[in-house]
Every structure is written in structure tokens, then in C-alpha cells.
Design a protein around this nucleic acid. Structure first.
Lengths: 106, 106
DNA sequence: ATCCTATTTCGATCATTGTCGAAATAGGTG
DNA sequence: CACCTATTTCGACAATGATCGAAATAGGAT
């Protein structure tokens, strides 16, 4: 994955509103969620939601599919996996990333 | 991990310059890199670098240690691991994240 | 055609960010 | 102390971002 693209995706979920939004979609699974549902859940203006959604879509992390008048939004899991993979690769590229100790206490 | 904190860390590496910076530090391992080295590597103004560095430090992803007149910067691997863990957890929280197929072809 | 719901686009406003150069500070060395 | 290098802070500027309400569009239903 290109660094520029990774940065774009990280920035996309690097905003609390969008991260909440994205998390909701990720948890929704393949069923996805309609935009209206997301609006009710997040409690923000429709135009604001549309704006954030647009950015998530531009980054590739979210896709949309029309079902009559409602738009279903879905997390793009392969993209998510690639992004996590990028971070993990960078983490362990040349250096020692002692990922064995998973305790936060350290 | 709190969502707000995760968003902050994601935003920190959600900028191409900072992601390059962070990657450099991650690859440098525990040895870290002095600020001056980073400046030469990235080719940006010292004040700009300092600004980005500050944001990485605020997010917790990077630490600094003084060695005489030079400041050594290091990636904070545990934080990185927590962040990746957060993303992975969200990914597979309630839904099916078919992470078994790691091919990008899907 | 008319109307209704769902969603986006437009236009505006205010806050934040990225960038730089110049000046200030931190920590030594002669 | 005077000086030197390393780094940050200050002040400024243009660009981008977050947010909203109002108006426009998309896709059906009566």
C-alpha cells in the first residue's frame, strides 16, 4: 500500500465523528446500515453526516449501495485489513516490535 | 482504549509528513533518531518538523529523550500495538471480519 | 402529475492545520 | 563569559475542515 493512501485512510478515521461512524458500520457487518439510521445514531445534521460519509467513501473504507430511496453503507473490510496490515508491517519492518507482550501495563 | 484517544492517534499519523516521520522512527527501532537526522531525511523546515513531532508526542505515539544537545525520538511501540489492537477489535467486534483470506484479490 | 421520504449539494461561518522564517531557548565547549 | 549547535516557540499566512440550515435531487407511491 502506498503511504499517501494509508495516510488518507488514517486521516479518514482520525476524526471522532468519523471513527464512531466507521465503527458503527464495521459492527453492522455485511448488512450495512442506511444513512438515516446513522444519522439517528450519531445525532448530527444530515449534511454533516453526508460530508463525513463522503470522506470515508473517498478513502475507500466505506461503500454505498442504493436500495430504492435508502442508501446502505458498508465497511469495506478488505481495505481495513490492508490498512491494519500496513501499520503492522511498518511496525515490524526493520526493527524489533516486541508484539508478544500484549499487556497494556508495560 | 477510548475512541477519542484512538481518533487522536489516527489523526496523528493521518498526515503524509507525519506518517513518513513515524515510519522512520518505527523502523529505527529502540535506538531512535535525533531530530536533526529526521530533518535531513524529510527535508522540511525545522519548525515544521518540530510542530509535527509535537503532535506525535501529544498523541503518545512518539517519545523523546535528551542526550546532551540532541533529542532522540523513538516510536512508542506499546501504544502502536494498542492502536492496531483497537482497529482489529472494532473490525471483528460484533460482525464477521473474514480476516482469514489475506489476499488483496478478493 | 403530485407528493413524500431519503439524501446530497450549496453557501456560509468559524476553527484548525501545515508551512515557513525569525527569534528565543537548551545544553554544552573554549 | 562568549560562542556554537540543536531544537523549540512565536507570529504570520494560506488552505483545509467541521458544522449547520436551506435548497436541490433521487426514487418511488397515490
Amino acid at each position: 500500500m502506498k503511504l499517501e493512501q494509508a495516510a488518507k485512510q488514517l486521516e479518514a478515521i482520525g476524526n471522532p465523528t468519523r471513527l464512531k461512524l466507521y465503527r458503527t458500520l464495521v459492527r453492522a457487518g455485511e448488512a450495512g446500515r442506511p444513512v438515516g439510521y446513522l444519522q439517528d445514531t450519531l445525532g448530527i445534521a444530515a449534511s454533516t453526516l453526508s460530508h463525513h460519509l463522503h470522506r470515508l467513501i473517498l478513502s475507500g473504507l466505506v461503500t454505498q449501495e442504493r436500495q430504492a430511496t435508502t442508501l446502505i453503507c458498508r465497511a469495506n473490510y478488505p481495505i481495513m485489513r490492508d490498512l491494519i496490515g500496513f501499520l503492522a508491517d511498518e511496525c515490524c519492518a526493520d526493527a524489533a516490535c516486541s508484539a508478544t507482550e500484549s499487556d497494556a501495563a508495560a
